[in-house]
Structures are given as structure tokens and as C-alpha cells.
Nucleic acid binder design. Structure first.
Lengths: 178, 178
DNA sequence: GTCTATACCAGGATAGAC
DNA sequence: GTCTATCCTGGTATAGAC
């Protein structure tokens, strides 16, 4: 049985994934973690601090693997295949929900902005390598990130439309000028 | 002084814009509308129903103008200029927040999905006209919508990054094969 | 239709036993 | 470190006067 701090972080991520940021409370987190609600406050002081810790964890846990796979990429198509794996894990959905909850919440905004930059740096480097000088790689990395985050929103209300849009991105990636 | 139903709808939109869906409560809406909290329930029965009504309103109000401007478009650049106007009004931000709140909320999901389709249909028609058969216009309309919604999330946590990404989309629109 | 007052409940947070 | 029990606040919703 892993230590309680880790179970609470995992429970938070799972709760956000399933119920969205609005449905993420001390009680729902504790239920997902299989512990008592009081432990949220014993270990993290507040729900907000736990959510911030979960934000950091969901980013840092996958980052080494993410960077390693990016380094081996040969095409934009590979990039979208990587996204398929990450999407299945639901990490992007968690990040999208946290960003939505960050509107009007400076503390959560700072935490998610840090997570976003952590993903963005290696992604930008990879796009610069793949695209050379043919396109504005820096801005494209950010636009691509935004598009994939937006897809998580669309998926929440209309999964079929999200699938169609993702397919279009795949096709577009093979049609960019080179 | 406009009628109370309308003031409540306007107050809801304004509240979501400023405080996000998580900060949108019967009390905050009533404060924005300048009326008493009890009137939310008298006129709409529940906060949820009011939010759904606001979702419909924020979509339908701008739709005629939106469609008219789309019909006159000559290039993808015109499209992003139109987006600049809509973004300034904050309607897209409201829709993004509603979609985020719709995760795990079937009723709100249905309402926002309907709004999304209302925007999407004329946008798809315009892209089909502009792109002819050069690209998959249907899927691109959906991908573009997702990207712009995602930008609203990024903007909440890191406005500078959102601006960079939008600039990249502008540049990309002039680099698509034709 | 609009207000004040209030019932009710869920969520955040703390106290204290173990 | 973990539990049960509890407090308090703020959010939803209703009752009843005007």
C-alpha cells in the first residue's frame, strides 16, 4: 500500500478526470483515495494545495518519457501518435480542467502555467528540429498545445466532433508545406 | 430597465466571463444582475437552468451577425479577424468555461454541444467555400474551433503564450497549400 | 414580481480520541 | 498518522410579506 500523500495525489487526478474540477472536493478525493477526508488537510493543508500538488505530479511523472519520445520523432505524424497515448491516460484532460478552474484563481493559474511550460519547452524544441525554418515552430508548438487542450473540452460535450477534429489535425500535419 | 429575465441572463454571462464557471453561483449572478438571489429561482427554477439559458443566449445573439460576416469572407485571414472581434466580447471564453463545467454534467453537456454545433455549421460551410477541395474543410472547422477554445484556457493561465499561439495560427493560415 | 428571512445541505476545515 | 465527530461558511432553494 503506497503512502497516503501519494494516494491522495492519485485520487485527486482520478477525481478531476472523472468528475471535472467542479466535482473535485475534499470528500470526493478522499473517497477515490480510500482514506478519510480529514487527511487531505493533515497532509496538504487545503484542497487547493492538494490540487496544485496533483498538477505538478501529473506533469512531472510523464515528462521524462515524453521528452525521450520527442527526441526520437521523425515527423509530425509521430507527434500525434504520442498524443494518442497521452490522451488515453487522461493527463491532458486533467490539465484542461485545472486551467478552466484557474480562471479567477491566481494560485491555480500559476501552478498550471508552470505545468504548461514544462510540456511546451521540449515540444517546441522538437518542432523546431522537424520544421527547420519552414514555419514558425515556437508559436506552432503553443497553438498545437491549445488545440489539444480545446479538444478535451469538445470531447466533454461531443466526443464524435472531437474525433473528427483530431483526424483533421492528423491530415493537416501531412499537408504542411515542406 | 430591461426585464429581469434578461438581466439575469446577462449577469450570468458576465459572471462566467469574470469568475469562471466555478465562481458562478446564484448569489454572484444576482449581484451582477443587480437583483435578489431569490429571483434566479423564481424565473429559472435552478442555477443550472439559468446557465443553460445563458448558453443558448450567448450563442444565438451573435449568430446572425456571425453568419453574415462569414458569408462575405474571402480568406482565412478574414476569419481570424472575425475571431478577434468575438474574443474581445468574451463569448468564446464563456463557452469554454461552460464546456469545462459540462464534464460529468449531461444536462450542461447537451446545451453546450448544441451551441457548438450552431457555430460550427456556418463555419464549416465557409471553410468549404474558401478551401474548395484542397483540404478537409469539415474536420478543419472543428479543429479550428477546438484550438480557439483551448486558447481561452491558456489565456486564463498565461496570456502571453496565448497571444503567441494565436499569432502562429494567423501565420499558418497564410501558409496553407492553395 | 420582487423582496426579506430562513431552512437545508454540502463542502472546507479543525478538535480530539486512538 | 488516521480516525470520528463537529463546526462553520456559503450555496441552493423555499416561504411568505409586500
Amino acid at each position: 500500500m503506497p503512502d497516503t500523500r501519494q494516494r491522495l495525489i492519485d485520487g485527486t487526478i482520478e477525481t478531476i478526470r472523472q468528475h471535472g474540477i467542479a466535482g473535485t472536493t475534499a470528500r470526493s478525493i478522499a473517497a477515490a483515495a480510500g482514506v478519510t477526508q480529514a487527511l487531505v488537510f493533515y497532509h496538504f493543508g487545503s484542497v487547493q494545495e492538494l490540487v496544485k500538488a496533483a498538477c505538478l505530479a501529473v506533469t512531472q511523472d510523464r515528462l521524462p518519457l515524453f521528452e525521450e519520445r520527442l527526441a526520437r520523432m521523425r515527423s509530425l505524424g509521430d507527434l500525434l501518435a504520442l498524443h494518442t497515448d497521452e490522451q488515453a491516460r487522461g493527463n491532458l484532460r486533467v490539465l484542461a480542467q485545472m486551467m478552466a478552474g484557474a480562471r479567477g484563481n491566481p494560485q491555480l493559474a500559476a501552478a498550471t502555467a508552470a505545468a504548461l511550460r514544462l510540456w511546451l519547452a521540449p515540444l517546441r524544441a522538437t518542432l523546431e528540429r522537424l520544421l527547420a525554418d519552414r514555419l514558425d515552430a515556437g508559436g506552432l508548438a503553443e497553438a498545437l498545445c491549445a488545440a489539444l487542450l480545446g479538444l478535451e473540452l469538445v470531447d466533454a460535450v461531443d466526443p464524435a466532433t472531437a474525433t473528427t477534429a483530431l483526424t483533421a489535425l492528423h491530415r493537416l500535419s501531412t499537408n504542411l508545406p515542406d
